[in-house]
Simulated assay, not measured.
Amino acid sequence: MFENIQSRGVDQILAMMQTFKADARETKVDLIVGVYKDAKGDVPVMRAVKEAERRLIEAEDTKTYVGISGDPVFRGQVPALLLGAGSPVIAQERVASLQTVGGSGALRVGCDLLNAVMPAQKIWVSTPTWANHVPIATDAGLTVDTYPYFRPSDRGLDFEAMMAHLEAHSKAGEILLLHACCHNPTGVDMSLEQWQIVTDFVVERGLIPYVDCAYQGLGNGMEEDAAGLRIMAEKVPEMVLASSFSKNFGIYRERTGALSVIAKTPEDLTKTLKAAETLIRSNYSMPPSHGARIVATVFDDADLTADWRSELDEMRVRIAEVRQELRAKLEARQVTQDLAFLTDQNGMFSYTGFNPEQVTKLREDHGIYTAGDGRINVAGLTPENLDAVADGFAAVLR
């Protein structure tokens, strides 16, 4: 039986991580893995998270199941985080959230739900998009197609091509997958004006928007990073959102995410949630407790919330400063290419535009590891490795 299995291969990011671990050079630099690192190169536990865990350990008196939908306090906090506390959608009782196994779990449950309603429906994803979007959607039974997004010439957004393609090819009832902020892998985001244009198009064409919000707070701020999806949420009749707390809480291994659904009516919402619960039950049955209780504890205490926001601000500022420093060091090394993309792009990731030959040269000659498509995790840059990275980048850019 098992001899007939045909592997579709290891995710290229995971494969590159394995190669990095096997590299014996002490000066090697990991710019692959999409986790926040501090100036020492560590993945820290946030102060508010540590305090919330201390309280939870002292107070916890059971390890019973949390239920299919997850922690009720956490679930109640998510809509306001995404849509804003004053959202009319919340007031109209048209939105609700389910706790999921990370943001990936939210994406999969959402795709399963959409496929249950509209079997094999087409979902449009950007070119490029996060490597796991296509496998998740395909395995859920949806049909994947792509729309233009990244423009290699200036490493920016080709919004005109995106809209022209969707205008020409998308049809009513199809699904449009969008990144809320800090687009992975490019770091190229839509402006609020462009969000408004897409929103109007979605309403007119009758598309179902599916927004992946994995990096809220790491671009321009918690409110600013959700501003685009909030424009859309107030105008569309139905919407699906997948969100992750791995990045903005630094609780990657706790696998804490949420699937949020906006329905036309409260009655439709109730039916939709029950359908999603059925899908969860036959998948992983119940989500884990710890991560969601961390988030709920932080948001339930004003002092913890303030400390969390302060540290998140520190993380965001560090990312922006590192972008500026890398650009300045490359310019000091007489790199004549336009480097504005380094500071124009948003969040942890930068799409450098390095071709496969340059990626290989960086790895083999300089010990600098990037994703195969040239994406780098800017947070992987530290005072200790920044000059070495700038030397390597300058060598391949000249």
Results as ranks from 00 to 15, higher is better:
Glu93Ala: 08
Glu26Met: 08
Gly41Asp: 09
Asp344Phe: 01
Thr129Pro: 03
Arg54Met: 01
Asn355Tyr: 04
Trp195Ile: 08
Leu98Met: 13
Glu314Ala: 15
Gln12His: 10
Leu83Ile: 07
Gln345Pro: 04
Tyr149Gln: 12
Met1Gln: 13
Ala91Val: 02
Ala292Arg: 02
Met315Arg: 15
Lys235Arg: 15
Thr138Phe: 05
Ile368Arg: 02
Arg54Tyr: 06
Gly173Tyr: 02
Lys235Gly: 02
Met46Glu: 04
Glu160Lys: 15
Ser243Pro: 00
Ile280Glu: 06
His169Asp: 09
Thr265Asn: 04
Ile123Cys: 14
Ala328Asp: 11
Gly219Val: 08
Thr370His: 01
Lys171Gly: 00
Val101Trp: 06
Gly219Asn: 03
His179Glu: 15
Ala390Ile: 08
Leu83Lys: 07
Arg281Asp: 09
Ser243Val: 07
Asp391Glu: 14
Gly353Trp: 01
Thr305Glu: 05
His169Thr: 12
Arg253Gln: 11
Leu98Thr: 09
Thr143Ser: 15
Gly34Ser: 13
Tyr36Glu: 14
Gly217Pro: 04
Arg255Gln: 12
Asp387Gln: 13
Tyr210Pro: 05
Leu269Ile: 08
Ala214Trp: 03
Ser191Leu: 11
Ala140Ser: 12
Ile231Pro: 04
Leu98Arg: 06
Glu224Cys: 06
Glu331Thr: 14
Asp145Cys: 10
Pro128Lys: 02
Gln18Pro: 03
Phe201Cys: 02
Pro79Phe: 08
His290Thr: 08
Tyr252Phe: 10
Asp11Tyr: 05
Arg151Ser: 13
Phe74Pro: 07
Met315Asp: 01
Lys21His: 12
Glu160Ala: 14
Val109Ala: 03
Gly141Lys: 09
Lys361Trp: 05
Arg47Asn: 01
